[in-house]
Design a protein around this nucleic acid. Structure first.
Lengths: 206, 206
DNA sequence: TGATTAATAGCACGATCGTTCGTGCGATAG
DNA sequence: CTATCGCACGAACGATCGTGCTATTAATCA
């Protein structure tokens, strides 16, 4: 890997955190440069424009999320177990602060949800990828409404982030986890057979 | 009412919408002035600083939300009926676009959830007031976990806003409404006696 | 080691940011 | 009629924004 790649990567790692604090528009080249003890123009040369920097930052945030949530669950069996693993990892990232300024996607979504352009599309794509994974595992798990279940999971994530960050509710993530657990159990009761270890088949149907 | 008050009010109405689109930092005095065909300095004179403008904008957004959601439900009996009325009005505002750029509070929360200062505190206060109302009615309705119920309602609102705005999911609000309805019915089953018309008292307790 | 290329710094630009100051107009009061 | 005041305007400030150029350093290769 060339030196440029390493520098670019270091820039983006900091850019992700800075954007999670200040937003993707508040993410400033000057600020970023002084934080990294670089010159504005030297940093800028790695990206042709601010928009490219924003797009690269989104991509880097996506990779960080992937490494923290998706990848570790790859060894878990698909369906209900992996869906549960996703949720646990997801909540864990909120607890531990995967991004220094709170959930990157919550901030980026709210900021660009009404601004057409490549940045919005990139955020859309990343969020859709995450929701698609949730939906896919929910479907394999036999949920009656996989998309709806993904919607609820994502909503609880947004709520937990907002409560924890804005309202300083230190139990917010735990609360969301428990709510999520109840919701998964309810959805799971429909197809008890798909699951992990014990085979005490007490399938219910609503 | 003096002329200044009228002008200030007109400024703030536009500021609320502009902030819901561009964020409270992206809310620019120059942009605001040109939108209203005013001079920057003439507009600025109504507020001593940008921060005061932001605070006034938050207050105006709070009043708009109050008029659209809280006030119309004042005549509905407290407890479960009013809680339901709140939720319906809440979802209605998301459907109809009470703020031109999506939920003002979702945007403001994500933007300032990590920036200490008077602006964050004002947003906190407004969100807490809304959550407190939800919690209060949930408690009167006899919910076993009023705070948790308020959390879920708010989370579904955030989710509906994100899905509708970022992902162009036109059924997002309806989906959230239905999820909310199921959730309220489940919570309501615990204390059937408190409610509206029929008195078939089948109270359960957990 | 010397030559070539890649990576960073320096500097300047137009634009816009929040903010301040002095001014002018219109109505109101003496 | 005149003096005062409330309100908005235009110009300008220093700072910072994103973005180009040109030089200079650092890394790579013969």
């Amino acid at each position: 890997m060339g030196k440029a790649q390493a520098t670019r990567s270091a820039i983006l790692q900091h850019a992700v955190d800075l954007a999670s604090e200040e937003g993707l528009e508040g993410l400033t080249i000057g600020r970023l440069a002084s934080d990294l003890a670089m010159s504005k123009s030297g940093l800028f040369a790695h990206f042709g424009s601010k928009q490219d920097l924003q797009l690269a930052t989104i991509e880097a945030a996506g990779m960080r999320f992937y490494e923290a949530v998706i990848a570790p669950a790859a060894s878990v069996p698909e369906g209900a177990p992996r869906l549960r693993a996703y949720c646990e990892r997801y909540m864990q990232t909120l607890r531990e602060g995967l991004f220094s300024g709170g959930c990157f996607w919550a901030a980026a979504s709210a900021e660009f949800d009404d601004k057409p352009g490549p940045v919005r599309e990139a955020i859309q794509q990343a969020v859709r990828a995450w929701l698609g994974e949730l939906q896919r595992q929910a479907q394999i798990a036999g949920a009656e409404d996989p998309y709806g279940l993904a919607f609820e999971i994502y909503s609880l994530g947004l709520g937990a982030n907002a409560f924890a960050r804005l309202l300083d509710d230190h139990d917010a993530v735990s609360r969301a986890s428990e709510t999520l657990e109840r919701r998964l159990l309810a959805a799971h009761a429909l197809s008890e057979s798909t699951t992990d270890r014990a085979g005490h088949a007490t399938a219910v149907e609503g």
